[in-house]
Design a protein around this nucleic acid. Sequence first.
DNA 1: TCTGGGGTCCTAGGACCC
DNA 2: TCTGGGGTCCTAGGACCC
Length: 401
Amino acid sequence: MDRIIMHIDVNNAFLSWSAIDLLKQGAKYDIRESYAVIGGDEEKRRGVVLAKSNLCKKLGIVTGESLYSARKKCPNLEIYPPNFKVYQYYSNKLFELLGKYTPDIEVFSIDECFIDYSKVKKLYGDELEFAYKIKDEIKEKLGFTVNIGIGNNKLCAKMASEFEKPDKAHTLYMDEIKEKMWPLPIENLLWIGKKTSVKLRELNINTIGDLANSNPHELSKYFKNQAIKMIESAKGIDDSEVITTYVDPKGISHSTTLPYDYTNKDEIYKVIGELSEKLGISLRKQKKYCHVIAIIIRDKYFHTFSHQRRLKNATDLNNEIYEVAKQLFDEAWNKEPVRLIGVRLDNLTESTYHQLSLFEDIDLREKDKKLEEVVDNLKDKFGHQIITMATLVENKKDKKN
DNA sequence: TCTGGGGTCCTAGGACCC
DNA sequence: TCTGGGGTCCTAGGACCC
């Protein structure tokens, strides 16, 4: 039997959710109806568009572009800061509402999910009617609009939700692919980004239909193994499952764009310390250990590179992460001023017994671990500012003196 | 006052082993 | 006295998604 999959996608999520929140706080008008974007702090050099209103979209403003460039397209642009607590609140509300109808939901991101409707069709009947009902219920109860796409697999459902926006439901069944998907420009196809679309257009493949009908052998010359997958996508083929259970992350990372380019090693170490500490806390919260630590550096020329190392012994301790990350930084740094610094933990595993290296002091390690657990608890109770790693405290002392 | 932050997956090349 | 070949693990980088 054919599967029926739904993709639910909040229209301009961050902007819509901020709009509702601002109205609640007594705002005079709805920023969804004006030339507004949600954007990062330009003073901190995080000035990019995170979400835009439909009016801004019409002016060609896209997510991810700099506010500087967005303002050129719209001189009176209104810029609002993101509020992630509010976003998480409305995201939860959305998934709660959907959860009343079926537990078979794959949360794909903060504002998107898939539903395997095949499993509940007997209960709720025709999928398109159901989609309309749900989207109206969301609008009425939560105050924002969604698009719903329906297809025989996740790919088609997601493609369908991208059709006309906002506040719409669309179908893209297998027998509608030719008519509804093939005329679209190649850029619209999922997994075909900027780089790939440029190459495809050079090969005179301009629409999704062109790609679907291209010669796999010929295309393999340019895209190797990816070619087959690309053509399958263009034909609307996708057998990936809706995954309704929680999937552990394979790695975690934190990174930060610095308020100005850093050249002083101690200043950079301090940031690495803060990032390591955050990572250590979330690692211990998840009861995980990491086997690989990486440092990510972006220099003032926007050149981004990384350096990683597999550990002999997996760790979940701030200080061990910090020490390795610092070392990796020293090995990788090209001495150019640093714009962004990041730390990433990979190859996460469930708590594994710690294999002691020959000269390691087991008591010392146990003490470290106990200490960090105590600190975690204190932070939960009193907030983050209360305790920082010894090195950070020392840095602060140095500054005072 | 140009260009966020957090992920996943894939590929290529080198090291190492049999 | 002229260079195998397959498999696995590891690292770096790139492309894509939200």
